[in-house]
Design a protein around this nucleic acid. Structure first.
Lengths: 156, 156
DNA sequence: AAAATATAGTTTACATATAAACTATATGCA
DNA sequence: TGCATATAGTTTATATGTAAACTATATTTT
C-alpha cells in the first residue's frame, strides 16, 4: 500500500501477508525493469539506436550467421517482429540478409562493417550505464539477484 | 558465456569477472521480466484483455478519479500513450472520462460498472498466476528479491 | 515421383510505446 | 485587466510488438 520510506500517519502492519509480498515483488520487478530500460533507451537514443536495434546488433556480435527464426528465438520475439527490425536495420546499412545456399527459404543475418563499427561505439556506453546502475549492490547481492531471477525464469 | 547448469566440455573459469556478472544480471532481469510478462499476457488474452489494459484497470481500482496525467505517471508511460489506452477502454465501456469541474483541461478517469466487473473477474486469475510463478522461491528469497529490486529502482 | 505436410520468411491488422508539435484552458505577473 | 507562460490532453510520425494468414521452398510419406 505504501513504500517503507513514504510518510505514514497510521500504524504499520507488523508484516505483510506472504501473498501480498509475492504480488508486490512482481510489480517491483516490472517497475525496476521499466526504469532501467528507459534509462538505457535514453542513452542509446543519443547514438541513434533503439533498444530493440541494439539488442539485434549485440546478439549478432556473438551469433553472426543465424537465421531470422533463430534470431527471433534468441531475442524472445516473434519472427514477424524480426522482419521489421531487420528491414529498418538493413536500410541503415547496419546488417545484411544473405540467402542461405543450402535452404532456399532461409536468410543468414550478418553485421555490415558499419554495423560492427556502430556496435563497437555503442557497447562501451551501454555497458558503463548498466554497470553504474548495478553499483548500488555489492558483489554478493548481485550474485544473489542473478540467481533468484534465473530460478524464476526457469520455473516457467 | 554459459549457464552454470549447461553441459561443458572445457575447464570452468574459477569465477566470472564482477563486471561480467553485473552485465549478465541485467540480461537475466530482462529475460525474466519478458518471460513472466508473456505468460501473464497469454492468460489475460483468454479474458480479452491486454497487459496494458489490465494495468490501467488495476491501477484505477485504487486510484479512481485520477487525471490522465496522473495515470500516465502511475503507469510509467507518456500521456500520449494514455490517450490511446483510454480511447480503446472507453470504446469497450470499461472506463469513462469525466470532465473535471474545477479544471477545464483535465479529465477524471473512472471505472464503469462493466469495468469493475471485468476487473473482479480477471484479478484472481492474474494473481494466481503471479503467485504460482513466484512459488519456486521461499518466503525469505522473495523478500530478498524484492529488496534488491527496490534498491536498484531507487538508484536511478 | 506425386501428394501431403512442415518450415522460413513475409504480410496484414491491430495494440502499444515514444517524442514532438499542437490546442485549449489556467495561472502568474506587470 | 491583459500578456506571458505553464499545463492537460490530443494528434502525428515512427518504431515496436503480437497473432494469424499467406508464399515459397523443403521434407516426408506413400
Amino acid at each position: 500500500m505504501h513504500d517503507s520510506d513514504s510518510p505514514r500517519f497510521y500504524p504499520l502492519p507488523v508484516h505483510e501477508e506472504p501473498e501480498a509480498v509475492r504480488l508486490r515483488t512482481w510489480v517491483q520487478l516490472a517497475r525496476t525493469f521499466y526504469r532501467i530500460e528507459q534509462s538505457i533507451s535514453a542513452r542509446l537514443a543519443e547514438k541513434e539506436l533503439t533498444m530493440a536495434q541494439f539488442d539485434v546488433l549485440a546478439t549478432l556480435r556473438y551469433s553472426e550467421g543465424v537465421t531470422q527464426k533463430e534470431l527471433a528465438e534468441l531475442l524472445l520475439v516473434t519472427k514477424g517482429n524480426v522482419v521489421g527490425l531487420l528491414d529498418r536495420l538493413q536500410k541503415l546499412d547496419l546488417v545484411e540478409r544473405r540467402a542461405d545456399p543450402d535452404d532456399g527459404r532461409a536468410n543468414r543475418i550478418h553485421l555490415t562493417a558499419r554495423g560492427r563499427r556502430k556496435l563497437e561505439s555503442v557497447l562501451p556506453v551501454h555497458d558503463r550505464l548498466v554497470l553504474r546502475t548495478l553499483d548500488c549492490l555489492d558483489q554478493q547481492e548481485v550474485g544473489t539477484l542473478r540467481r533468484l531471477l534465473k530460478s524464476l525464469e526457469q520455473a516457467l
